[in-house]
Nucleic acid binder design. Structure first.
Ligand SMILES: [Mn+2]
Ligand SMILES: [Mn+2]
Ligand SMILES: [Zn+2]
Ligand SMILES: [Zn+2]
Lengths: 138, 138
DNA sequence: AATTAATTGCAACAAAGTTTTATTTTTTTG
DNA sequence: CAAAAAAATAAAACTTTGTTGCAATTAATT
């Protein structure tokens, strides 16, 4: 049984060509992907299938979403702590303004934020933008 | 000259009915607005006009965008420090999972984040979600 | 008041996302 | 392994969201 199949089974998803393909794209990419990118890299899959696959991957805790200001949604692989229904992605995300890549910065956790009275925090998303390490090497 | 006219002139925008109407909506709302909401509350304005107005308000520094995970864009009034081309909105945003409102939390600034070597930060967005002060009163 | 410049609304279009349904594929069961 | 059941897929139709070009209108300038 391949790594992909094992991973999908672990999350209680039936193993299909489309899911294996999309999961492989995430494993290969060291960065976040969006629907359009996946569509380009998996031309055999129907648009709708990609939407549904991303949705179930999020539900199962395989990938998580990353907020953006440009009405697109980015998705990246979760680490092991995430499971069905409960995400525990407490890390910073970095969007490079030069190459456009979005990275999970797993090493950096989001600091606790002290909110005004009455506000109760359940989750926090922190997206830093700037110039990434690769773009700064050139 | 009305408050609205003064404000628009200050930002070098010609004064039109549509812009006054939309600006008024932002002043009234103590929260972020999205395109669809404005469309509902200003039915006399063409969809396209609303898109263009939001765009020029952002350019002029009257409003700023707030990142979301749901492929929508939220907009909220800027404070005085923002001007043409340079936004200085360094505050936390709060999204209430109960009432759906998005607030600017001006009192809380985004902490400095120490990134891994090679990454250079230009901007940071922090969105906290949970239960807002109003929803916690009931 | 006349001229110029900017904004608006409309139409046409493009892109993004959803819903329904029949077909195909995967999983389960005997 | 084959049959039955369950789940996922593709295709089509549709809705929503966002963009572009252009003529008509409105606002600013002279
Ligand atoms: Mn991440
Ligand atoms: Mn704000
Ligand atoms: Zn980069
Ligand atoms: Zn609330």
């Amino acid at each position: 049984m391949s790594q992909l199949e094992t991973l999908l089974k672990k999350y209680n998803l039936s193993v299909t060509e489309g899911r294996k393909k999309i999961l492989q794209l995430f494993l290969d990419a060291n960065a976040a992907l969006e629907h359009a990118t996946i569509e380009q890299n998996a031309p055999s899959l129907d648009r709708v299938t990609i939407y549904r696959t991303l949705q179930s991957f999020v539900e199962k805790g395989i990938i998580h979403t990353i907020p953006t200001t440009d009405s697109s949604i980015k998705y990246a692989l979760c680490k092991d702590e995430c499971g069905h229904g409960h995400h525990h992605d407490n890390h910073v995300h970095f969007l490079c303004n030069t190459c456009g890549t979005t990275f999970c910065i797993e090493q950096v956790t989001i600091p606790k934020i002290k909110l005004p009275a009455g506000f109760v925090s359940q989750q926090a998303d922190l997206v830093v933008s700037g110039r990434c390490n690769l773009c700064n090497q050139n």
